[in-house]
Design a protein around this nucleic acid. Structure first.
Lengths: 124, 124
DNA sequence: CGGAATCCATATTGATACTG
DNA sequence: CAGTATCAATATGGATTCCG
């Protein structure tokens, strides 16, 4: 055991992080945050921005982020229907930490790849 | 499309983040990073630290993080065998961004939960 | 002690077709 | 345009057993 860190501390200090990482660490959320960072966008605009996402996953991911209060959804009852998605304040506040982690990822991507290559070579 | 942001920019600036988020955003990696933050620990020590992780997932997660160069694995050929895991420098450098995101998560957890509750109530 | 191997349940994702 | 419904493929995670 780590003497100065109880399991409750781990739960309180770290386990709370996991659901967040799971949400924003999924396959699409970060890309959606980035697609919306300049302002509201429509469903198929976002879909084209990302390019490879399926309709189903875009719907599911948007719903999840809306449920978490990260994005808002506004429907204009026109024909054809128009739906705009936008980051909430909470969603915008997430950009800082995410981009910090992104900076780390970019800064260390080469080292990670070379570590993977080395590992794969040694365990041929 | 976002005029000032090509798909290549998205790939270069954001998509590089995703594999990292996928790795550390999985169910266990963050807890392992925190368990190792004070120094090297043995397999079953980490397992007891986390408490709920299965042997299989601890092995798999440690392997993945080792492959990414985040942790090191040192075997002492004694009987019984002794294996120590430790954060590499790269692993330690990840603590900052992860803890920043953790701070965001803790700071905004209540707001997220209330957003979820509100959403679930409105979509009864 | 520190795994590897196997089996099984569930979750996630994608492809396709259909709708108001 | 912005979804919903359904099915199939894959990924993920847990339980159990066995081993040097």
């Amino acid at each position: 055991m780590i003497p100065h860190l109880s399991n409750d501390d781990l739960l309180g200090g770290c386990e709370a992080v996991r659901p967040i990482l799971v949400r924003i660490g999924d396959k699409w959320s970060v890309l959606i945050v980035m697609a919306l960072r300049e302002g509201p966008r429509r469903f198929n605009q976002i879909r084209r921005d990302i390019g490879s996402i399926s309709q189903r996953m875009l719907t599911l991911t948007l719903r999840g982020m809306e449920r978490d209060g990260l994005i808002s959804r506004k429907v204009y009852p026109t024909t054809p229907p128009r739906v705009e998605y936008a980051l909430t304040e909470l969603g915008h506040s997430l950009r800082g930490p995410v981009e910090a982690l992104g900076a780390w990822a970019i800064a260390n991507e080469a080292e990670i790849v070379s570590a993977q290559t080395r590992y794969d070579a040694e365990n041929a």
